[in-house]
Amino acid sequence: MPFREDQISRYSRHIILKEVGGRGQEKLLGAKVLVIGAGGLGSPVAMYLAAAGVGTIGLVDMDVVDVSNLQRQIMHSEKTIGMPKVLSGARTLERMNPDVRVIPIQDRLTAENAMDMFSDYDVIVDGSDNFGTRYIVNDAAFFLQKTLVSGSILRFEGQVTVLEGHTDAPCYRCLYPEAPPPGLVPSCSEAGVLGVLAGTIGTLQAAEVVKKILGIGHLLTGQLLLYDALAMSFRKLRVPKNPSCPLCGPAPTITSVSGSSEWVCQIPAP
């Protein structure tokens, strides 16, 4: 695929990197990435992927933009308050880079629709806000043998990992075998979150996605990166595959996507 003049200019800083080059940039332009959650994490992930020239970006979210989102969800703006997040996001991404095709999916991710939704994509990014969705995303990515780049944030801390349960690496259920009881883990709206933390964790996720597409460097597979913004410290833990994982272990008991997006960690706002 020959580059247009404007593409050579746009991607020159990539093309000049020997690990990327013209071939790597072509891979990015041909890649399809699905971003679950068009919020705090989804914003920096999708924006950096769009800027990098990732050719197809799917955005999944059923919410509309609220003024309380704007402290960290940088893909949205004052002007898009009230608009579905996936459309607000698509507008931002398309304005950043006309090479990118954005697929807005304003729908609730469920155990029933996840496999269909994911099947077309090369890499899945989890920036969701509840555990039910995290297990659904994990299971569907596992069954479809897709790399899942997972990130989460709360207060001043964040976690990033790359899950490939279909290989000898762990899945989300290896790390977190059982979902916590509903209502006991506070959400960002209850506990708060430092806005810029979403950018830190989201851009780390974006870096892992780009590396996966290019096939360069070392990914956080089998490792959990922990970031503490107050201490300004990063720690990397080895996380093993659980040999008795009910999903990705040798004797699985979970044989279809499970988990529920009805699972709610939030106490309704007063």
């Binding site: 959650g37 994490l41 919410d63 989460s152 944030i153 709360l154 801390e157 916590p180 883990v185 979403a198």
Partner: peptide, 12 residues
């Protein structure tokens, strides 16, 4: 020991 806290946050 590594005590890992559940974090769901991201979207909201």
């Amino acid at each position: 020991l590594e005590i890992l806290f559940f974090m769901g946050g991201g979207r909201n």
